[in-house]
Write a protein that binds this DNA or RNA. Sequence first.
DNA 1: TCTGGGGTCCTAGGACCC
DNA 2: TCTGGGGTCCTAGGACCC
Length: 413
Amino acid sequence: MADAATILHADLDAFYASVEQLLDPSLRGIPMAVGGGVVLAASYEAKAFGVRGGMPGRQARQLCPNLRFVSGHFKEYVRLGDEVMTILESYTPAVERISIDEAFLDVAGSVHLFGAPAEIAADIRRRVREEVGLPISVGVARTKHLAKIASQVAKPDGLVVVEPDREDEFLHPLPVELMWGVGPVTKQRLAERGIRTIGDLAETPGESLERLLGRAVGSKLGALAINEDPRSVERHRRAASVSAQSALGRQPVSDDLIQRTIRHLADRVATRLRAKHRAGRTVTVRVRFEDLKAVTRSVTLPAAVSVTPIIAEVAESLVRTALADHPHQRIITLLSVGVSHLEYEEALQLELPLHLDGEERRPGTEKGSERWALDKAIDEVREKFGRASVGYASVVLAKDRAVPDEFRELAEH
DNA sequence: TCTGGGGTCCTAGGACCC
DNA sequence: TCTGGGGTCCTAGGACCC
């Protein structure tokens, strides 16, 4: 593990909102948000009123009556996010982009060229402001975990450097929820044991944490709290799954609704898979009911698929099994389709029928209704395959939605 | 005070294989 | 036919992150 503070975490401030304020000067200095039905991003002026990302638009307007909503310029977000990454890459090739607006850098090899890590961080902030026009916060520390917390503490538009001999002093007073991996549930579980700060966490024996939170989460948090973070900056990670979802409001279950929605989602997923020259063996659907309880159903096929109608038919069958297992749920609020177990080469699916011929039935090993549905799904794959190679089902999206399609494209990072 | 969309990782039980 | 242990894959659910 490195013993000097050479890891940077660079994080653009209120990214979508800042871009809108950059593009339209009349939005600067006022509470504004990107979105409408739901807040996708809020400016710092809006955050001062308690407006947060993910919040329903109506609630945001109650908190902040003068809140101005704008629809997003999604292509600009991609373009400006890329520009910032290019600036980061001019300091080191060791840049790990973890979302559209956020990246880790390891500048250990760059100090001879560009100066100390803190100087590089200050330079990055100045250049992003001057060349792109956006505020960015940077944390500098010895580990990724510390650097990430430092950038959160630095916000908005700040720089925080954690010297290696002052790590505990920096970390211990901070609330546990600033740690990566501590959400509402874990925070609550810790609070019940009187653990509120990272210092409290560092004093708690590892075995207690593992008992309280499970083996993986407990040991990870324990290690992070005492500044053991073995992760290094990785240049790029390949996606392990591709999925699409659609919130439906409250809709009574109907064949038509399921068919239309699933085909649309399958088409989105399949299109993105093919654009990446990838295909996947496991198809997963998620159905959320009126009470917001969600169930998932998945199948792993003998070969990877990326063609719209195949994914659509397998997914439809899975949705039907999920609904059959919950006969009293008559209202659904969300559907999603995902493909995982990804492999390369779209051409892989030409082999599908051959592999499927080897499919064995093992009677008595599954519940009847589920087995029936899965058999049906596979039979449909087999039956449809010839037609599938001719062309893709053209799917028309019927419903208007709160979130524009461009935003969905964005989350691929 | 129930809100969008795209992801990752972990757990646990069962099937299956050696 | 019973006995045992270990490893891997699959499925379902859950917590979390941006």
